[in-house]
Structures are given as structure tokens and as C-alpha cells.
Nucleic acid binder design. Structure first.
Lengths: 211, 211
DNA sequence: AAGCCCATGTAATGAGTTACATGATTCG
DNA sequence: CGAATCATGTAACTCATTACATGGGCTT
């Protein structure tokens, strides 16, 4: 079996397994669910559907519509459901890279003006609050649907993450408002985020080690 | 000014601005710092260095070594520091996609066996605990270095995130151990994570809306 | 003797984003 | 009458990963 397909392929397969849908429909649905932790762009959906079809894991039938454009409705095949089950039985890939566009700037904050730093934090807070509100509404909605358990719990994962980060913003705001040292000199060559060599455990070995 | 360069380019520039380093050295350093929220593979570092050099933002000088291979030590130029400052003054790109390789499987958990689900959760807990331990050690270390403030706070962002997620695992474990409904039937076509159309606010509009 | 650390790269591959193209219908 | 929704794609691009290549020195 081919397990070396991207996660996204299986994600599309899994969504179709929940309920048959057109490409457009699936993309919209993904955006309101999986998209919070695994974004799938609309165009990518069409490519994945083509791939899944060539694998024989999904099939489609045309559905004519009156006032709306005709569409193709996709659903999983027996093989597709088997492939999904195999994938689910396999352990998850480690990490998957938490890229955080905010932190990559914040990290270099010593070089920023106070005003720029405040804007950066404000923007981050705003986006986290929007996520929190979205997810809170979603969770409340899903609590009324008995079979939406996994979805509700996934959303809660996002909610708790957002709340923890909002708490972090409060901490940071407080600390940056009351500087313990007169001013951060930005000439110290060791003023950096990094452990001593010996203090590093798993990560470095994973990434730099040969396999 | 060219702001349409990838974040990674600026990340490498920023790291070199903290302290000059060889490519190899920078990659190792990145792995112990930025890598927690913005992974940069070793080979990519060399490519970014080449790009930065062609932009005139960094320069290098050869450093011969006795027992070790000779190396090139890179540092930022005046132009490079200017470009970094401009980038930092610019607002951060929204989101940056939190891809979570665990959640993308968990989301389809209704199709999994109880045992597979337990393994999945155990693996996730293990990796979160490793991250937590790493970051806790890092933070303690950095607390002793006065100028490592931003690094320490960035690490704390990761620590709080990991802790929130560990808490989530406890919640989930408890809920899945005591099923409120006799069994999740996996035939309900609407058993899904998704809000009603009207319940969706910012996200959908951002993603599906024209700009 | 095996394997890791330092050190620098090239080549191939592919996943994912963005721009572009088209067109009917419906809502404010 | 402009904008949004539904609907399906193609084309170009590029970031990022993985595999490959090389080689001396040090440790177990």
C-alpha cells in the first residue's frame, strides 16, 4: 500500500468518507472544519480528487442542477475506505511543523521599535480572539450534534491553544511594559535564544542525526 | 524594497544579525531556537545564504581551521540590517497555517479502533512532553542571560501551547473513556465538524472571498 | 571498525499557493 | 449594477524536503 502520499490526500479522502460532495462543496466544508489545523486550498482539492480517482479510491457521478451549474459528486469506493483505514491505523507523522508567522518576527523583537512591537502583539491578539470566537461558536453548535464528537474535540484543541496564547500575550505585555533592565543592549553577541549544546535533547538529534 | 521574499530568508538574515556564523553553525543554532516554531533545514540555509549574498545583504570571509574543515563565516551588511529593519516594521503575515499532523488523523477518529486511538494519543502526549521538557530547560537557561529575553518569551509561547494541549489530552482521554452515547454510529452523514453556513464568520470570508 | 561531528554543497522532486479563465444566477 | 455564490478547472511558480556526494578527525 502506498503510505507515502501527502496527508492532504488522505484528508480529502476522509472528508468524502464522511459525506459525498462536489469539489467546491468539499473545499468549503474543509475550510470550516479541517482548515483550522490543516488548510486545504480549493484548487488543491481538485488536484487531489483527480489523484484519488486515478488510484481508484473515489468515484464520481454527474449531478445536473437547474439554476446552478451542474456538478460532480464524489464518494469513496470500497478500495478508498480500505486505504483510509490503513492510513488511520498507521502512526501519525511526527510534528508536521508548527510554523508561526507571528513568532518568527517576535523572536527578532529586540531590533523593533516599541510601537512596532505593540502593533505586532495587537494583531496577533486580534487574530487569536477571532479564532477563539469562531471555535467557541463551533463547539457550542457541535455539542448539539451527537456524532460530531471528534470534530468538537478537534475544535476544542484549537480553542485551548488560542486561549493559552492569549494568556501568553498578557504575560508578555506585562513584562515588556516593566523592563527589569534599563534597556536591552543589542550588541551582546550571545543575547540569543539557544540552549547550550548539552542542554539539547531530542530535537537536535532527530534533525541532525543520520537515519 | 523587496518584501515578497519568504519569511525564511529574513529569518536567516535575522539570525546572522544576532551573531555571525557559518552555514552549518547557523543551521544548528536555528534548530535550537527558531526551529521550534519555524523549522529551517540545513540545506535550505545554504540556499538562503546564496540568495542573501546576491542581494548584497550578507557577506562572508573564509576562516581556516586546524583540525576541522575550513569554513565561511557570514555576517550582515549595512544593507542587510536595513532590510531586516524594514521587514520588522512591516506587519506579520496572517496565520501562516498551523498544520497539525496529529489532529488531521484524530479528526477522523470515528473510523479508528480504540487501540489505534490510544496509540495516537499516547504518541502525541509523548511528543508534547518532550517539547515541554526541552523548552522548560531552555527557558531556565535563558533566564540567566539578560539579553535573551525575546528568545525566552518565544520559548514560553511554545511551553504554554504544549501545556494547554497536554491538558486537552487529559480531557479527551476522560471523555473517550466514558462514552455518553452507547456507540458512535459512523453512518450519520451529518456527523461532522462544521458550522452552519451562517455561523461562520471571518475565516470563510477570508479564504473564499475575492480580494 | 563503526559511527558521529564538522563542513559545504548539488539534484531531484513535489506539495501548496496564487493568478488566470469562464459563466449563470441571485441578492442588495 | 456590482458583488457574492456556485462550479470546475489550468498554468506558473517556488518553498521546502530528501537523497546524494565528499572527506578528515574524533570517540567508543
Amino acid at each position: 500500500m502506498a503510505f507515502d502520499l501527502p496527508e492532504t490526500t488522505y484528508a480529502v479522502l476522509g472528508l468524502l468518507d464522511k459525506r459525498p460532495a462536489s469539489g467546491y462543496d468539499l473545499a468549503a466544508f474543509a475550510d470550516r472544519s479541517l482548515g483550522y489545523f490543516w488548510p486545504i486550498s480549493r484548487t488543491l482539492v481538485y488536484r487531489e480528487l483527480a489523484r484519488l480517482e486515478s488510484l481508484g479510491w473515489v468515484g464520481s457521478e454527474p449531478v445536473p442542477q437547474d439554476r446552478l451549474p451542474d456538478k460532480r459528486v464524489w464518494s469513496t469506493t470500497e478500495d478508498g475506505r480500505g486505504a483510509l483505514a490503513s492510513w488511520l491505523a498507521q502512526p501519525a507523522v511526527a510534528g508536521g511543523a508548527d510554523r508561526n508567522g507571528f513568532l518568527v518576527k517576535f523572536f527578532f523583537g529586540a531590533r523593533m521599535s516599541q510601537e512596532a512591537m505593540r502593533t505586532l502583539l495587537d494583531d496577533y491578539r486580534e487574530s487569536l480572539e477571532a479564532t477563539r470566537a469562531d471555535l467557541a461558536a463551533l463547539i457550542e453548535h457541535l455539542a448539539r450534534i451527537p456524532d460530531a464528537r471528534m470534530g468538537r474535540l478537534s475544535a476544542r484543541h484549537g480553542l485551548l491553544t488560542a486561549e493559552a496564547r492569549l494568556g501568553w500575550i498578557d504575560e508578555v505585555t506585562a513584562e515588556l511594559a516593566a523592563p527589569s533592565h534599563p534597556r536591552t543592549s543589542d550588541t551582546d553577541p550571545d543575547g540569543a535564544f539557544a540552549a547550550d549544546r548539552h542542554a539539547v535533547s531530542v530535537r537536535t538529534r532527530q534533525r541532525f542525526g543520520h537515519r
